[in-house]
């Protein structure tokens, strides 16, 4: 039985709902040794900022119970090098490219989108207003509904490509942010970014990562991520891209049933770089075994 795995995120058409999450596959070159990137729905780049960012000093990561904390600090090559060196490689992959942008000011978001809008290879923008690991920008915006409104509005004014606002779980009401994003013209929201966490050494009594706090990801956050997707899906009529702790096809299907139109795979790439290909096989089989001809038919089919 042939299965139609394609899904639509607003005007963005994906050949299947599988995306690789920002910051977990760099700019695609290393992971392409394991994954045929033309076979999956798309790849979201590491957050790009206007100028290169060196990132935080080590130690940047630590393992926790069924998860990990990271405080990379948005280390990235910057806009200029991204366009000159990374886009040409990504262009040849035949994968849908979603460019994730992080900035320290509203103006910087706007300038980045303005410049990158000309790049044909980029099919959509994911706006990161939720990085917990940098002082300025990131979470400061993610915790301020007005700022998210302003960023969405201004960025919308600069591009007709689909805009996805990546939401933070580190605030009291994620629904407010999803509502504002929709109101200001975003095509979709992605949820969730990492949860703020920390870990201490009981002998040295020092934090295990230099930044003291980091972002928690991996299987440990899946129930939280699912609950956020559910909340948004109940309250706001906007496509949701589910992210958080997806390790296998079952996790992915769960997100779609709860309310996600597509999903992203993050931490799983580190442990099993082929995870996305295995998930592709898994969701196809699930559809076949359950006589589902279009995967989009399972979106939001939760029974509550």
């Amino acid at each position: 039985m042939s299965v139609d795995l394609s899904v639509n995120i607003g005007s963005l058409k994906l050949k299947n709902p599988i995306l690789l999450a920002s910051g977990t596959v760099g700019y695609g070159n290393e992971i392409s040794e394991f994954v045929d990137l033309s076979k999956i729905g798309g790849i979201v780049t590491k957050s790009i900022s206007l100028k290169p960012r060196k990132g935080n000093p080590p130690q940047r990561i630590v393992e926790t119970s069924s998860g990990m904390l990271n405080a990379i600090g948005l280390a990235n090559v910057g806009l200029e090098l991204f366009i000159k060196e990374k886009i040409p490689f990504l262009k040849n992959l035949g994968s849908t490219l979603i460019c994730n942008i992080a900035a320290s000011s509203i103006e910087e978001y706007v300038e980045c989108v303005d410049i990158l809008d000309k790049e044909e290879t980029i099919k959509a923008f994911e706006i990161n207003v939720s990085c917990p690991n940098v002082k300025e920008g990131g979470l400061i915006f993610g915790n301020d509904v007005k700022a998210v409104a302003k960023i969405t509005e201004k960025v919308r004014g600069k591009t007709s490509k689909p805009i996805i606002i990546k939401l933070s779980p580190n605030n009291s009401n994620i629904v407010d942010y999803a509502k504002i994003a929709k109101q200001e013209g975003a095509d979709a929201v992605s949820a969730i970014n990492t949860l703020v966490g920390t870990s201490f050494d009981i002998y040295s009594k020092k934090p295990k990562i230099k930044n003291i706090t980091g972002g928690l990801s991996g299987p440990a956050i899946k129930p939280v991520a699912l609950a956020k997707v559910l909340e948004i899906s109940k309250e706001v009529d906007i496509p949701i891209i589910g992210i958080g702790g997806i390790m296998n096809w079952k996790d992915a299907v769960e997100f779609m049933i709860v309310g996600a139109s597509a999903f992203q795979i993050g931490t799983a790439n580190f442990i099993n770089p082929k995870a996305s290909m295995e998930i592709l096989d898994g969701i196809k089989k699930y559809c076949q075994e359950n006589t589902i001809s279009k995967i989009s038919d399972i979106i939001r089919t939760r029974k509550i």
């Binding site: 910051g23 977990t24 596959v25 760099g26 290393e30 992971i31 590491k46 060196k54 990132g55 000093p57 080590p58 130690q59 940047r60 990561i61 630590v62 393992e63 990990m68 990271n70 990379i72 280390a75 931490t267 790439n269 580190f270 770089p273």
Partner: peptide, 21 residues
């Protein structure tokens, strides 16, 4: 400490003499 081991997580920086990671 490493998560991926092959360059995709940026988790394992070391500073070189030009102050780059």
């Amino acid at each position: 400490a490493m998560a991926c081991g092959f360059g995709i997580c940026q988790g394992c920086p070391i500073e070189n003499k030009d102050n780059n990671y």
